[in-house]
Structure formats: structure tokens, C-alpha cells
């Protein structure tokens, strides 16, 4: 595993999954259950994706920003203030991130599909 980015961990839990970079609501049909939602900042048009996601990463935000608050309510890990996450992370990347430490690791593991929290 390679540490590729660090942000502010705002909702605890460790998750492993596939990145889906979302630039707007039009990306909605391509979002699959348990994908990791990576976006600049979540907005209300992304609620169906947030509900499906196994974790959320945003370029900006703080401890009390919207994605931070709702992630804690849904019990999924979240990192905000991960500068340039939408550029550094690519669609289909397999990553593991820690919603407590804010560390995002890229992994090269064909047998990645074993998620835990």
C-alpha cells in the first residue's frame, strides 16, 4: 500500500473500495453500491450516491461541514480537506482510507474486494 494523500479524518472507520470521482449529479447513474465517493464538496444532488457509498472523500471541508456531519450519522468513514483528491484519485482506483487519521492509501491488490470497517 502506498500513502498518496492525507486529509482531515472526520468520521471514523477504515474502508477499502473503488474510487468514483463525482463532478456533478449527472455522474449519478454510474455510481455503484459501496463505491467511494470522491468529490470537491458534496451537495444535496448527491444524496443518493452518499447513501450508496462506503466512504466519502472531499477536496475541502471541516469537522462540521455537510459531508462530515452526514457521514457520522450514516456510520461511514469520511475525510475532508484532502486537497486535490479529485485530481490525484482516479475513477477505478482501489484505495483504503482511515476516517480517523485522514490517511488515504492506494493499493494494488486484485483480491481487494473484501471490505471491512
Amino acid at each position: 500500500m502506498q500513502l498518496i494523500l492525507t486529509g482531515l479524518g472526520v468520521s471514523q472507520g477504515i474502508v477499502k473500495g473503488k474510487v468514483k470521482v463525482i463532478n456533478g449529479k449527472d455522474d449519478h447513474p454510474h455510481f455503484e453500491e459501496d463505491d467511494i465517493l470522491v468529490t470537491h464538496l458534496t451537495d444535496p444532488t448527491m444524496v443518493p450516491m452518499m447513501s450508496k457509498s462506503s466512504g466519502i472523500i472531499c477536496n475541502i471541508g471541516g469537522l462540521t461541514s455537510h459531508p462530515s456531519i452526514v457521514s457520522r450519522e450514516m456510520g461511514i468513514p469520511c475525510i475532508v480537506s484532502a486537497d486535490k483528491a479529485t485530481t490525484i484519485l482516479k475513477d477505478g482506483d482501489i484505495i483504503q482510507f482511515d476516517g480517523k487519521t485522514g490517511e488515504i492509501h492506494k493499493i494494488d491488490d486484485k483480491n481487494w474486494n473484501m471490505r471491512w470497517k
Partner: peptide, 17 residues
Amino acid sequence: GKLLGRLYTSAYHLVNG
């Protein structure tokens, strides 16, 4: 627990708008 979290999330964002 998951459903209530999702309900909170959707209503929270409605309130935001």
C-alpha cells in the same frame, strides 16, 4: 441504524435547500 442515518441525510439536505 443505516436506514435512519440515510433518512437523516436526505432530510438534512432538503433543509439545506
